[in-house]
């Protein structure tokens, strides 16, 4: 598998490490009312067969965290963006 890093170009899988679902959002609140949101954030993940937006770290390259859209069935990668986009 190869990932097309916006900084470094297409690089082999072994330069990256996988983290997982890129769509989960860390809750803003630390009030008790946010408990379900925290449990969701820390523990619960969808496991879709198909397109999956996920985080990869280019540790052997530019050290960017990337948001990669990958088809979990075919491994086809359809989009790669910097996680810190807009900055």
């Amino acid at each position: 598998m190869r990932i097309n890093c916006p900084y470094c170009g297409a690089r082999g899988l072994e330069e990256f490490t996988y983290r997982g679902d890129a769509t989960v959002k860390r809750p803003e609140s630390i009030e008790e009312s946010a408990r379900d949101a925290w449990v969701d954030y820390v523990y619960l993940r969808d496991n879709p067969a198909g397109l999956h937006k996920e985080l990869w770290h280019h540790g052997a390259g530019c050290h960017s965290w990337l948001e990669v859209t990958r088809n979990t069935v075919t491994h086809e990668i359809t989009a790669v963006e910097l996680a810190a986009k807009g900055r």
């Binding site: 490490t17 770290h57 540790g59 965290w65 996680a83 810190a84 986009k85 900055r87």
Partner: peptide, 18 residues
């Protein structure tokens, strides 16, 4: 060392890019 470095990069780029 590596894990913490990656963790800080995650915090800075993914959680709080602002």
């Amino acid at each position: 060392a590596l894990k913490v470095s990656q963790h800080l990069e995650f915090c800075q780029q993914v959680l709080w890019p602002e």
